[in-house]
Design a protein around this nucleic acid. Structure first.
Lengths: 109, 109
DNA sequence: CCGATATCTCAGCGGTTGCTGAGATGTTGT
DNA sequence: ACAACATCTCAGCAACCGCTGAGATATCGG
């Protein structure tokens, strides 16, 4: 079935619109170097904002904005460090990561 | 290793910036309902522009713009129908699809 | 050859998005 | 209590993006 050829004599006008909303939402969150960098960094474990800011070469308030979007999207969550509560450590929400990966995979087959 | 806790006493400032450029490029192409819909439709085989336009409820010139971006990104290619060369049938470039999926998966783990 | 069909290109516009700067909140160490 | 630190919020601006409309190209049918 792969690499099929166009054999139909007439175009079909009755195709259903596929539901891609969740994949589009996940892709929009990944479609930025800073947000993608955050998710990649967090794949190896939690990091605080200042760690990620220096790793990604971004200002902390800028990073904070992107973290807010990832939080709103449910992909990450934050927790204060137990020994020094000044530091907010972010970690991935694995359930949401799995869901995002599934949604993207559904579009890319 | 999953759901690890923040245990470090001091933040690290020596983390390397991860390379996410290809994942960001792939995500940007997926981060639009029409482009994602195109890719989803093409997962089941080739379609001409008018088929996809009616399925996605978009104008043909608008769709053509999105197809151009997917073409530039290498994710799809076009071929004229053998029996009626008026129709341009688009199909996925499977190699590029696999590469895009791999780039996205590298960010999401 | 001409009208209809299928598709593309491009300029223009309106909405969205990301970065910055300034100020606010909360925490620590002294 | 206060200064330094870590982080957040938000308004403002510049850049980008997608939709539209108009016109161009290519192919078919008569």
């Amino acid at each position: 079935m792969r690499t099929a050829l166009p054999v139909l004599p007439e175009p079909r006008r009755d195709l259903a619109a596929p539901d891609v909303a969740s994949a589009v939402a996940a892709a929009a969150l990944l479609a930025d170097p800073i947000r993608a960098g955050i998710l990649r960094l967090l794949a190896d474990g939690p990091h605080c904002v200042c760690e990620m800011a220096s790793a990604l070469g971004a200002r902390e308030n800028n990073l904070s904005n992107h973290l807010a979007r990832l939080r709103d999207g449910g992909l990450v969550r934050a927790r204060r460090h137990t020994g020094n509560a000044r530091f907010l450590y972010y970690e991935r929400n694995e359930d949401a990561i799995v869901a995002a990966r599934a949604a993207l995979a559904a579009v890319l087959e």
